[in-house]
Design a protein around this nucleic acid. Structure first.
Lengths: 124, 124
DNA sequence: TCATTACGAAACCATTTGGTTTCATATAAA
DNA sequence: TTTATATGAAACCAAATGGTTTCGTAATGA
């Protein structure tokens, strides 16, 4: 699945603060472009281009209704971000806790090579 | 807290695929620049610039050892990403579950307007 | 029918980005 | 001391980015 969002990836799409605001705005409601752009200090055309980027990343879906195009959030591609982040969960906050979670959750697909004490983490 | 990583934010820092690879590489080990750049098809100088961006976002820490500068991951700023993502958790995965959680938790501060059927809710 | 509204495409522009090569400097090694 | 190594700063460049204004077209409404 996850229809190969070729041209723009999620990481790049959310790099821009305007686009992040767009995503939040559209998470609550489906909205047409003009209404959307009233929430931003830039031109409608500029908003339209941001929406295009988001669309190419698969993060919004558009639907034509009469003469307007309504956009809404399509959150699925954010899973990629979540997965990426998950790798690093091990390293922040309480690192020991993270390790514990990791060992317990048995989603040990990757050997992260963290060796905190010289102990063998493969213990069961 | 969270020492105002002014110039580059986390979102922008991780937008570049090379920088994402750098973070993974440095999560396991502290490494000097030349060794790092052997893992990439670009010049050492280019790698150095990427490291600077990561550093300005607070995502790596450098330490001078003799004539080399060693870099390692500093994962704390990723929490910002995690928090941002968390907002959207409601919307992906099993949307019915999310809705259920939402309804049950009675923290109905926001009208999430999840439209499960594809019907136009505005019809009156 | 004719005017208005909603929208995206196009052309254009300044700035940022990601890369290069060259150079200066500090440390290590011979 | 002299040479080699490790690194970042500087100058430069092409392409991408984020914005603008102008224009064409489709749908609504008077």
């Amino acid at each position: 699945m996850a229809a190969a969002s070729a041209k723009h990836d999620v990481f790049q799409a959310i790099a821009d603060p305007t686009r992040r605001r767009l995503l939040k705005l559209l998470s609550n409601q489906e909205m047409p472009v003009t209404a959307i752009s009233e929430h931003f200090p830039i031109s409608r055309t500029a908003v339209s281009k941001h929406l295009k980027v988001l669309s190419e990343a698969g993060l919004v879906k558009e639907r034509k209704v009469g003469r307007e195009t309504r956009y809404k959030l399509e959150p699925d591609p954010l899973v990629e971000l979540k997965d990426w982040l998950q790798y690093f969960e091990l390293f922040w906050e309480n690192k020991l806790n993270a390790l514990k979670r990791f060992v317990e959750s048995d989603e040990s697909e990757v050997d992260l090579s963290i060796n905190l004490s010289g102990e063998d983490k493969q213990r069961k």
